[in-house]
Design a protein around this nucleic acid. Structure first.
Lengths: 170, 170
DNA sequence: AGCTTACGTCAGTGTTGTTGACATTCCAAG
DNA sequence: CTTGGAATGTCAACAACACTGACGTAAGCT
């Protein structure tokens, strides 16, 4: 356990927060919390013919309107075939619009329709409500720590994708 | 947004951490971080005939040796048919042992075999390594906040399951 | 004896991931 | 200018893993 890094500001007894038992509790907290995190949208989606994959697609198309399929692929981390099945149903149902690229006609730019925005609102309202309650209960200091740890846990490519989205919103 | 709870210690401009944009960033952080969280075990499991479901089962059997099938069902939040498929392969491959209950012979108590422990070690070593790096980078204060928010995000039943596991380890 | 509980299993279905094959479009080398 | 390769996106088939529903067995409880 003690790796003896002298550059680390937390030394000696303060390293107790890095014991295997602490890490295991962090792992389990992550597991149980993620279940809660997806529970509300999942309940809403269960009534429709959609699943979690549709939610993710709708979320990120709303977040970055006009994004290409390839771009969305990198963010979601699935194969293009997998994403395509989801997009096909969303387009067929009139929730997403796919426009051929102006400069590069190979690209498809994705936009939410009115109905798509409505679904996105419904889903993210539910998810934000839980997040808001958790944030409020925990307080701003805990929220800052929450985000610091999560960012440190991401793969570096995903952290960049996350940062780009974050910065684009400002 | 402003719910005007006077019992809340964070008021006025401090509520900025509860804006929709902040919540959205929390949601995205959760999404990307969870991908990182499962990436390492997934890579290991991909080479075997196992998946994430096997990992979860092995993790919690290791965590609570002798647990019953029903108990595991509640923790994992899947149907018995779903869990059974996983358990059957784990037992057939000699990673998990199922013992008929002493007092109640209807129950099956689950234990990891030597080989089961070996797999659990491999998987949780990989997962803990990432968690440890994230915790160390973020520092103990952030880690405390991380766990506070995650606990607040759980469903209450799951929070109880989580707390029981946590307390049982002390 | 009859009801409930715990567990296992078979059959069928849906979502979501995968690989393989293919069409279209762009671009650059010859 | 043509041709070959790279990039983008679509269609088809398959695997993993969740779900529901129905049924069977053994054991405990009233």
């Amino acid at each position: 356990m003690s790796d003896g890094r002298s550059a680390n500001p937390y030394s000696g007894e303060n390293l107790l927060f890095l014991t295997d038992e602490q890490l295991r509790q962090g792992i389990e907290a992550m597991f149980f919390a993620y279940r809660g995190f997806t529970a509300d949208p999942d309940r809403i989606l269960a009534d429709m013919a959609y699943g979690r994959a549709h939610h993710r697609a709708v979320h990120f198309i709303n977040r970055a309107p006009g994004t290409t399929v390839n771009n969305l692929l990198n963010i979601l981390g699935v194969t293009k075939q997998s994403l395509n099945r989801v997009l096909r149903t969303l387009i067929a149902d009139g929730l997403v619009e796919s426009r051929v690229g102006q400069t590069d006609k190979r690209e498809r730019h994705l936009y939410l329709t009115e109905a798509g925005h409505a679904l996105e609102q419904t889903l993210s309202d539910a998810q934000r409500a839980r997040m808001r309650a958790a944030f409020r209960d925990a307080g701003p200091n805990a929220v800052a720590g929450f985000r610091t740890v999560l960012e440190a846990m991401m793969d570096s490519e995903l952290r960049h994708a996350y940062t780009r989205l974050k910065d684009a919103a400002s």
